[in-house]
């Protein structure tokens, strides 16, 4: 194992982390502000990827795909919120889990009816389809673009929440919603906006993931589970927690997958290591989450106030 390989793998972990962060940010905002558990967040990510792929296949333009997909997912999110979810804010978490579980079934089958059961094609723009030489290895340029775009969006989110009036209301709404309402702010509209923002981020992640992951029914669930791991590990409701949680989960998962089997081979015989390595690597992040929760039930970076 060389240092170059290790750094490449860290970069891979970072890229997974960035993708997870885009999803976790939306999920944790909705959870923190509306106290709402949205299992259908992964479905919004899937819809974003499908919108992007549909536009891409019609126009052959990657940029246009994003320009359409992100607002479309945002609108879809707000529509779902207005039609169904708004009625569930006052209910307990179980009802929310159940209703959004129903939405997952619906969206998975819907894309199957519209786009068929097989994966849909989407590709990275020509300029980003090559590799960049780094640490002695070719690193896919497109993955660099994901890291950059994700960090840019993360910074924008930070700026919006901490420096703008809307952000101030969002922060206030998270701590004392009644007070914000009493001050004459339309809380219901604010909720819809936050939900739309989360959906937009999910759509953005779906668009970014389209060229590397296959766009297919059910693509939202595996990543939803990972996202839940992220926000619970990081501390629910906190953007900061979502960011660090995503990076930790991304890097632990990638490094574990990459080096654990090789590492185990040092101690165990080959066939045993080949069997145990992947098994342990795949439970690593769940182990991480269980340990974190057992020690700090509120997560690593809980919301400080409220």
């Amino acid at each position: 194992m060389t240092l170059g390989l290790f750094l490449t793998q860290t970069l891979n972990g970072l890229q997974l982390g960035v993708l997870l962060f885009l999803l976790a940010a939306g999920l944790t905002l909705v959870f923190g502000i509306m106290n709402f558990v949205n299992l259908a967040h992964g479905s919004l990510y899937m819809m974003g990827a499908y919108f992007a792929a549909a536009v891409f296949n019609a126009t052959n333009s990657f940029v246009l795909a994003g320009v359409v997909a992100v607002p479309a997912t945002m609108l879809l999110g707000m529509l779902v919120e207005r039609v169904a979810l708004i009625r569930l804010y006052q209910r307990d978490h179980l009802d929310q889990v159940l209703a959004t579980f129903g939405l997952i079934l619906f969206f998975n089958e819907l894309v199957r009816i519209i786009w068929g059961p097989a994966s849909v094609y989407m590709n990275a723009p020509e300029a980003l389809s090559g590799t960049v030489m780094l640490f002695g290895f070719g690193y896919p340029a497109y993955r660099f673009a994901i890291i950059a775009a994700g960090l840019f969006v993360g910074a924008g989110l930070y700026w919006m929440i901490h420096k703008t009036r809307v952000g101030m209301l969002i922060r206030a709404g998270a701590t004392k919603p009644e007070m914000v309402a009493a001050l004459g702010v339309n809380i219901s509209l604010l909720n819809t906006l936050v939900f739309g923002l989360g959906a937009g981020l999910a759509g953005f992640a779906g668009w970014m993931a389209g060229p590397i992951l296959s766009v297919q029914p059910g693509m939202g669930e595996p990543i939803l589970i990972l996202t839940l791991v992220v926000i619970v590990t990081g501390g629910i409701g906190s953007i900061r927690g979502a960011f660090y949680g995503a990076m930790i989960v991304g890097i632990v998962d990638t490094i574990g997958r990459a080096f654990l089997p090789t590492l185990l081979r040092e101690f165990l015989e080959r066939s045993l290591a080949q069997a145990a390595g992947p098994a342990i690597a795949s439970i690593l992040i769940y182990l991480l989450m269980a340990v974190v929760l057992a020690v700090r039930p509120q997560g690593l970076f809980p919301v400080k106030h409220g």
Partner: peptide
């Protein structure tokens, strides 16, 4: 014993985590 140290949403997630661990173990 481990899970009950938490409650609410954390409990939901930690029980899920354990189920996932056993799932992957059974697959292997």
């Amino acid at each position: 014993w481990v899970c009950l140290r938490t409650s609410g949403i954390a409990f939901i997630m930690i029980t899920l985590a354990f189920a996932q661990m056993f799932y992957f173990l059974s697959v292997s």
